[in-house]
Computed example of a mutant assay.
Amino acid sequence: MYAMSSSKPILLVIDDIPENLTLMYQLLKDDYRVKGANSGARGIALAESAKPDLILLDIMMPEMDGYEVCKRLKSQPSTRDIPVIFLTAKSERIDEQKGLALGAADYITKPVNPEIVKARVKTHVSLKLSSEMLKGENEALEKEVQRRTCEAIKQQEELHAIQDVAFYAMISLAETRDNDTGNHILRTQTYIKHLAEKLRQNPRYASQLCDDVIKLICKSAPLHDIGKIGIPDHILLKKGNLTEDEFEIMKTHTTIGYDAISNAEKVSGQQMDFLKYAKEIAHSHHEHWDGNGYPQGLVGDEIPLSARLMAIADVYDALISRRIYKPAFTHRDAVQIILSGKGTQFDPEIIDAFVDIADELYQIAMQNMSLKEHDAS
């Protein structure tokens, strides 16, 4: 019944209700090879043998519920990298943090909205296939580098090009999740370049901010929010204020981003300077100078300089931009708000550099901001 073209990604649906299995099959069969299991035990066995690209998993099942199934899948090397989306009825009280802690990628509520199901499945299957593709490309790259040991200059140029492709592939994935991301990335990258160049006029930072370091920081800056790929849509795209629990989940984008970049570095088999700054920025751009930030509660100079620069660039752009949850602030109000964080949220000396070039940053913003993003004068 479920035989489909072998070129299509494989989906596994685990649900104890036959009607639900049939519904998901009919909904997804045109684009995927859909396999079904009517119990947790059968689902685990099928996941190990079929190696699906994504698992849709019901939570409320007899004998073994979805949480236990997910826990067992994530404990096995052969299945732990398969993304899992939980299926749950709207009337059920679910523990989202528990599910995410177990390794679930997302939640979909029943009765399902066909378009939402298709969109979520497409996003997570694409992420998995892209990850596998990048891993394969890294293995191929290693062989290619070995083959071209006598072509040092050409090899270096090709390596840089591949790094750029990988960077922008990851950035593009982030943009598919959050419509605010695209121009925000371009603007903050430009802000941080100007901030760093201004800050190195300060003798304390001159030796830390040579041209090469500034170039690497700017190259890494677009990955500051890459971890938001791992935040569920109902939190990432929420129009109202987040609840405390939702905010705790949102805060994990810093560690998700850090782990993703670290894993990419491990796959490459070598330390890369530009990934060093990418990890610093992704992990620490929400740390506060006074220690009240997250995820580690770092204080003062414990926070990497690249992340302290990113913090101001990120907040300034967020303030002057219209988002789904707030209107845009004026440039003047945004500067005052940032000034109020001097010595508490932000490095005081970087604030001084920011004030000196604030008008210049505003001109950059206006040149790279659409009317949709900006509604304040």
Rank of each mutant, 00 (worst) to 15 (best):
A318N: 13
T243C: 12
G257V: 03
I231T: 04
K326F: 00
V299N: 11
G240C: 01
F274D: 09
H331G: 00
V299S: 05
K251T: 14
I320F: 09
A328G: 03
L242Q: 05
K326R: 15
I303G: 04
P203W: 08
A313N: 08
R322W: 01
L298Y: 11
A282P: 00
G297Q: 07
Y258G: 07
Q208D: 14
A278W: 00
P327D: 09
Y277L: 10
G230M: 13
A278Y: 00
L236K: 08
V213Q: 13
P203Q: 10
D301P: 01
K219A: 14
L298I: 04
P222K: 09
L236P: 06
I226W: 02
Y325G: 06
G293A: 11
D211N: 15
E248Q: 14
A311T: 02
L298T: 03
L209T: 10
T243G: 14
I320E: 04
E280K: 09
S207N: 14
I217K: 09
L275W: 07
H224Q: 15
R322A: 06
H283S: 09
H224K: 14
K238T: 04
F329A: 05
S321W: 00
A264Y: 13
L309I: 01
E244L: 12
A264Q: 12
C218W: 06
A307I: 05
G297R: 06
A328L: 06
V267I: 10
S268E: 06
G240E: 10
H253K: 06
T330V: 02
I249V: 12
I226R: 09
E287S: 07
Y277A: 02
S321C: 08
Y258D: 10
H288A: 14
N202C: 06
A311F: 01
P203F: 01
L305M: 09
G291Y: 04
P304H: 08
G297I: 00
A311P: 00
K276Q: 12
S262W: 03
A328M: 01
N292C: 05
R323V: 02
M272A: 06
Y277R: 07
L319V: 11
P327V: 00
C210T: 14
P327S: 02
Y316P: 04
M310S: 15
A311L: 07
C218F: 04
E246V: 10
S306G: 11
V315I: 10
I261W: 05
D301K: 12
L223G: 01
K276E: 12
G269V: 11
E280I: 06
I229F: 00
M272L: 15
K276G: 11
M272Q: 14
Q208F: 12
T243Y: 07
E248F: 12
G257S: 01
N292G: 13
S284L: 07
R323A: 01
E302C: 05
Y316C: 05
D273L: 15
Q270F: 05
G293V: 07
I231N: 05
E287K: 11
K266P: 02
A260I: 01
E280N: 15
S262E: 13
R322C: 02
P295C: 05
Y258S: 13
K238N: 03
H331W: 00
D225K: 14
I217Y: 06
M250L: 15
I320K: 04
P327C: 00
K266E: 15
E246K: 01
S268C: 13
G227D: 11
T330K: 00
A264N: 15
N241V: 12
I303E: 08
G269H: 04
T330E: 02
W289T: 03
H285Q: 03
H234L: 08
I235M: 02
G297W: 03
C210P: 07
G291M: 10
